[in-house]
């Protein structure tokens, strides 16, 4: 049985730099990230469990959104006419958020980014359950990180475990957790 262990969210309008300074402070790569990656990174910091920074293949990172990398895509597009920016271009991929979380935490398991029309708990629960068909995956850091603009986003994340001691991971409990 899959269970939900923890939940974290970042309200729209949060000053991400201030949050970074309060919670982390020693990871300058943060300042190179686009808004979606900053959100994913900060959510993962809140959910990270001990021991930290130990390579592990059994932790998956599954990220969902509607906007993908669109917010940063607009920033990159602005540079295209004159001097296309390589450091903006690398963030024009919807899955870089999963890579940033994996790099920071040394999560060497599956990482996947899904784009859905809207946050739909039925679909998210189904996709997460399906990801656990990978027999190495024992837990998954899952998140809905939808950055529509740098100051307009929805961002929350939760940890799903195989046979953990949290509530059962199902549509009802995901609804309940998200709406808390």
């Amino acid at each position: 049985m899959l269970t939900i262990k923890q939940f974290a969210s970042i309200p729209a309008g949060t000053d991400l730099t201030a949050l970074y300074r309060a919670r982390v402070g020693d990871y300058p790569k943060f300042f190179k990230m686009d808004t979606a990656c900053k959100l994913g990174f900060l959510l993962a910091e809140q959910l990270a469990d001990e021991p930290r920074f130990t390579p592990r293949e059994d932790r998956a990172v599954l990220m969902f959104s509607t906007s993908g990398s669109l917010c940063n895509d607009r920033h990159y597009e602005e540079t295209v006419r004159e001097f296309p920016s390589p450091s903006l271009f690398v963030y024009t991929l919807p899955n870089i958020i999963t890579g940033e979380i994996a790099i920071r935490n040394k999560y060497e398991g599956e990482t996947s980014a899904y784009v859905l029309e809207r946050f739909n708990p039925e679909t998210v629960v189904a996709l997460v359950e399906q990801a656990f068909q990978d027999t190495v995956t024992a837990s998954a850091l899952c998140g809905w990180v939808d950055a529509r603009a740098d100051d307009d986003f929805t961002a929350f994340a939760f940890l799903v475990e195989r046979d953990g001691n949290g509530k059962e991971f199902n549509v009802e409990n995901l609804y309940g957790t998200v709406n808390q």
Binding site: G99, E100, A102, I103, N105, Y107, E108, E110, D134
Partner: peptide, 21 residues
């Protein structure tokens, strides 16, 4: 299977970690 190098966002792993796994 899908595996991450957990190394760099654009540079492939020097040890082929994720691909090997």
């Amino acid at each position: 299977a899908i595996r991450n190098d957990a190394n760099h966002i654009s540079g492939p792993s020097r040890t082929g970690e994720g691909s090997y796994k």
